[in-house]
Simulated scan of single mutants.
Amino acid sequence: MLQRMATVETGDDVYGEDPSINKLERRMADLCEKEDSLFCTTGTLSNQLGLRSLLTVPPYSVVCDEACHVNVYEASGLAYLSRAQTITIAASNDKYITVDEIKKKIVVDDGDVHCAPTRVISLENTINGVVSIFTYLEPCFLTCGLIV
């Protein structure tokens, strides 16, 4: 791997001059049937860009597991960059949050200026090595109507 890294053609990604990154972004855009894609060098950058793109006009809240990265780590990026608050859930099964736990924490936009309505449910795989079961959480996507 080190030999390959030392010999691969590179360029300045800021100016779109890195052929490896360009190829990766094109491949991902094609796979996802999107116009374009963006390579992010860290999970933190990916999380913050994704959340910011969904939280366009504050105030909003994000429901998440209390142990997830956007709540515990990432230097309060969610509050600082997106002006959103987290509404956290302690997983009662000590593994992953459930649909019922999520539904109880959602803040509905009822026009009250004192509230931050839930705009995003942030689910992370893995948290402390535990994989959330997507098929178990899928009904939440359908009934909450919050995931874009």
Rank of each mutant, 00 (worst) to 15 (best):
V8H: 10
V14R: 15
E66G: 07
S53Q: 11
T88H: 01
E138W: 11
K23E: 14
S46L: 04
C144S: 15
G77Y: 08
E101F: 00
V99T: 03
G11A: 10
I106Q: 01
T56V: 14
A29T: 10
R27F: 14
D100G: 01
C64T: 14
H69P: 00
T126E: 15
F141E: 05
P19D: 06
L78W: 11
E101N: 01
R52F: 09
V72K: 11
I133F: 07
Y80W: 13
E25K: 10
L45T: 02
A6I: 06
S82G: 07
T56S: 12
D100H: 05
D94L: 07
K103Q: 09
A29F: 05
L123D: 01
A67V: 04
S132Q: 10
G50L: 07
D109E: 02
D100P: 04
I89P: 04
T118P: 09
Y80K: 15
Q48S: 11
S132W: 12
E35W: 01
C32H: 15
A6T: 07
P58W: 11
G145Y: 04
T88G: 01
E66D: 09
Y80D: 13
I87L: 14
T135Q: 13
V148W: 12
E9W: 01
L45C: 02
L142Y: 13
C140F: 15
P117R: 01
G43D: 06
V8L: 12
Y73M: 09
I21S: 03
R4A: 13
V131H: 14
R27T: 13
Q48V: 14
A84R: 02
Q85H: 09
Y136E: 15
V148Y: 14
V120R: 02
V131T: 12
T56H: 12
S132P: 15
T7R: 04
A6P: 02
G50V: 04
P19G: 08
A6S: 14
L78N: 08
L146V: 06
D110I: 05
V70F: 01
I127G: 00
L24N: 08
Q48M: 15
T98S: 11
K95I: 06
S53K: 11
G77E: 08
D18P: 09
E25L: 03
V130I: 13
A6E: 12
V8I: 15
A75M: 08
D112W: 05
K104M: 06
V148C: 11
L51D: 10
C115P: 01
V108P: 02
P58D: 01
T42H: 09
F141N: 03
L49Q: 05
C144Q: 03
T42I: 05
K34Y: 10
L78T: 14
T44M: 15
S132I: 10
L54C: 10
G77F: 08
C68T: 04
T56N: 13
E124F: 00
T44I: 12
D65R: 00
T143F: 09
E74C: 11
G111C: 02
